[in-house]
């Protein structure tokens, strides 16, 4: 994996990578992709994909309120809140 590809991938994953990291990451990711590419030679065209080992499907529940309002407890652990809102850097001027 070349430097441009690593930078593009890091951008997609919202990860800042330093200039000094890119080359090593490229080497590691190439090695990992070489491992997973061993799947290429397997003939699996006639096999249905499996998402759940017991073939279970998502349960649905009644559309009822089951949770108490714990906003204060949840926001207490947030890095930055005000008046019940989570604060992020300014998006629109």
């Amino acid at each position: 994996m070349n430097i441009e590809e690593v930078i593009k991938l890091a951008r997609l994953a919202r990860l800042k990578v330093g200039d000094g990291e890119v080359e090593g990451l490229g080497r590691d990711l190439s090695a990992i992709l070489a491992l997973v590419k061993r799947l290429e030679s397997a003939s699996l065209d006639d096999v249905e994909p499996l998402a759940h080992p017991l073939d279970a499907v998502q349960r649905l529940r009644a559309d009822e309120v089951t949770e108490d309002d714990r906003r204060d407890a949840f926001q207490k652990i947030a890095p930055h809140t005000r008046d019940g809102f989570y604060l992020v850097p300014k998006v629109i001027d």
Binding site: L12, L25, V36, L39, E40, L44
Partner: peptide, 24 residues
């Protein structure tokens, strides 16, 4: 990064879907 790669546009069938088939 590996996860982002295998799920990125155009690679899904070659990686994720094929891995799910292997899983079965």
């Amino acid at each position: 990064l590996v996860g982002t790669y295998v799920l990125s546009s155009g690679y899904y069938d070659a990686y994720y879907l094929k891995a799910q088939k292997a899983r079965r």
